[in-house]
């Protein structure tokens, strides 16, 4: 039982990370109609910039603004120099352009920081564990990640539902042409949305840095799962990204944790382990296929 609670927490933590990445991607996708493969690069840039500043200054917390700023500025630059020229174009041109960006960013990071993964450190006071229940110690830092993820979710909820910008964003996700026709400065809105998405990706990257490896190509490792979240949740829906992120985090974690031992009840141990983890690896894709077959627009997709 305690093991189950712990695995649920793990799933939750993975889920909020996916949400942070997917939130930006789903907005860019839904409002601007842009498939941004380079979203993972923004995650990587956040991780590198934050880690570098944290190491130079000796303060983990100074890394946060650095990561956010670097990712947001890169996002603005991508939007102004590349993506803006591709709004009117086919999705496929965007795929090719942002694929080119991935190659460019990865190699630029190698030129700047070398090929070796960077050293990262947890901030003092967060490197231990908290006893949540008797017999259930849980890493403090992971609890912080869950908290930050939930805070961002609440913040985005207010931003989208209670502010003028949020209203435009919602309108844009439902009917892009109409918003443009109403004389809204769509260019500014696009830039803001892209910057916000980049910022969130940078935040996710820096938060993940102390528990993962800060290395070239780290963005592509999580890119596919992020796209899966966006599509399951419904393109353009922040709420969908949140629900799908948590769902995916839980499904992935719980399958990996418990499927092998469940299978071991009915077949020999080593075969059960291999098959179990094999199915668990396919798990998120299986989930996506099922969701899309039942609800082709995703869980919270616009019906239009």
């Amino acid at each position: 039982m305690i093991l189950f609670v712990e695995q649920v927490l793990n799933g939750l933590q993975y889920g909020v990370m996916l949400f942070l990445l997917a939130a930006g991607l789903t907005l860019i996708f839904g409002i601007m109609g842009v498939i941004n493969l380079a979203h993972g690069s923004l995650y990587m840039i956040g991780a590198y910039a934050g880690t570098y500043v944290a190491a130079q200054t000796g303060s983990f917390w100074l890394g946060v603004p650095a990561a956010l700023a670097a990712a947001a500025l890169t996002g603005f630059a991508i939007e102004a120099l590349v993506v803006r020229r591709l709004y009117a174009r086919d999705h496929l041109d965007q795929v090719l352009a942002t694929f080119g960006l991935i190659l460019t960013f990865n190699q630029s990071i190698i030129l700047l920081f070398g090929r070796q993964p960077l050293f990262t450190q947890l901030p003092a006071g967060l490197d231990g564990s908290v006893m949540l229940l008797p017999g259930l110690p849980y890493p403090t830092y992971r609890l912080l990640m869950i908290a930050v993820g939930l805070l961002v979710a609440v913040g985005l909820y207010f931003l989208i539902n209670r502010t003028r910008i949020g209203m435009l964003v919602r309108a844009g996700a439902t009917n892009r042409e109409m918003v443009r026709a109403l004389g809204v400065d769509i260019r500014l809105l696009y830039t803001l949305v892209f910057g916000l998405g980049a910022l969130l990706a940078g935040l996710a990257g820096f938060m993940a840095a102390p528990i993962l490896a800060v290395q070239v190509g780290m963005g592509e490792q999580i890119l596919l799962a992020t796209f899966v979240v966006v599509v399951i949740g419904g393109v353009g829906s922040i709420r969908g990204a949140f629900v799908a992120g948590i769902l995916l985090g839980l499904v992935d974690t719980l399958l990996r944790a418990f499927l092998p031992s469940l299978l071991r009840q009915v077949m020999p141990g080593s075969e059960a382990d291999a098959l179990g983890i094999g199915i668990a690896s396919m798990g998120i894709y299986l989930l996506m296929a099922i969701v899309l077959l039942v609800r082709p627009k995703g869980l919270f997709g616009a019906t239009a």
Partner: peptide, 20 residues
Amino acid sequence: RTGGVQFIMITLAFAQMIFF
């Protein structure tokens, strides 16, 4: 049964399952 972006992702999903 799907189209558009969903078609992109569902073909990816099947390919990933075959990969694994």
